[in-house]
Nucleic acid binder design. Structure first.
Length: 215
DNA sequence: AACTCGGGGCA
DNA sequence: TGCCCAGAGTT
């Protein structure tokens, strides 16, 4: 028996989140699959605003995978330094670009399986790319989406894959993209990993985590 | 399952 | 100063 809210409660929760975060558009709104891929790799453990600062400059000169092959790890590392973990990210991006050129003709593959073979691309990044750039059914589960959705009862699993399935079952498809951002915003501002601000949260009426806490 | 990578924003 | 951050790879 899964500890998940009823359909009617889920609808109310989503309505509350919608009002709470009326403008859920991410800073990472790249239409180009390649730029979306690079921006999402950079976004690991880093806010979208900072990634946007980096890519705004980076993408002026480096638009295609081929463009990156002339860069050394040190050179690219310097350009992306402010987003953190820059040595790993630089190395992975250069390897990924090399693979994109040599194996995929400079294009970004459109399947999760192929994307996850690329260095620096895990399930979350792959899901971001296929859902946003290739219009496929997927919900990218990052730490915020995972924590918040499992706390309030939109999902019930300690596994990312099952959380994805729960969310896709419980949220209407038209809301997937927005709900992804609602959960992230709420996770950052209110439903934080440590010291969640339940006293400010309009979802406590429904929240299973809150109900378990107060007794 | 635990560890590593990390500069920068903010209290 | 210390805490925290739109993950992924390695051991």
């Amino acid at each position: 028996m899964k500890d998940i809210l009823h359909k009617s409660e889920i609808k109310e929760v989503l309505d509350i989140l919608k009002k709470l975060y009326p403008n859920p558009k991410s800073e990472l709104n790249y239409s180009n699959p390649f730029e979306l891929l690079i921006a999402t790799i950079l976004a690991a453990q880093c806010t979208d605003k900072r990634v946007n600062m980096i890519t705004k400059d980076l993408f002026k000169k480096y638009k295609k995978p081929e463009d990156y092959l002339e860069l050394s790890e040190e050179e690219l590392g310097k350009k992306i330094k402010s987003c953190g973990f820059y040595r790993n990210k630089s190395k992975n991006i250069l390897k990924t670009c090399k693979i994109l050129v040599e194996k995929y003709g400079g294009k970004v593959p459109n399947s999760r399986e192929e994307l996850m073979k690329l260095p620096g691309v895990g399930r979350k990044t792959a899901n971001v790319v296929i859902s946003n750039a290739f219009n496929q059914d997927a919900i990218a589960v990052d730490t915020h989406v995972f924590r918040v959705s499992n706390r309030i009862g939109l999902a019930n699993s300690n596994d990312v894959f099952d959380t994805e399935k729960d969310l896709m079952n419980n949220i209407p498809k038209k809301d997937w993209s927005d709900a992804h951002h609602w959960l992230i915003f709420h996770g950052r501002r209110v439903c934080k990993a440590r010291r969640p601000k339940c006293e400010e949260c309009p979802l406590t009426k429904y929240c299973l985590y809150y109900k378990n806490q107060i007794k």
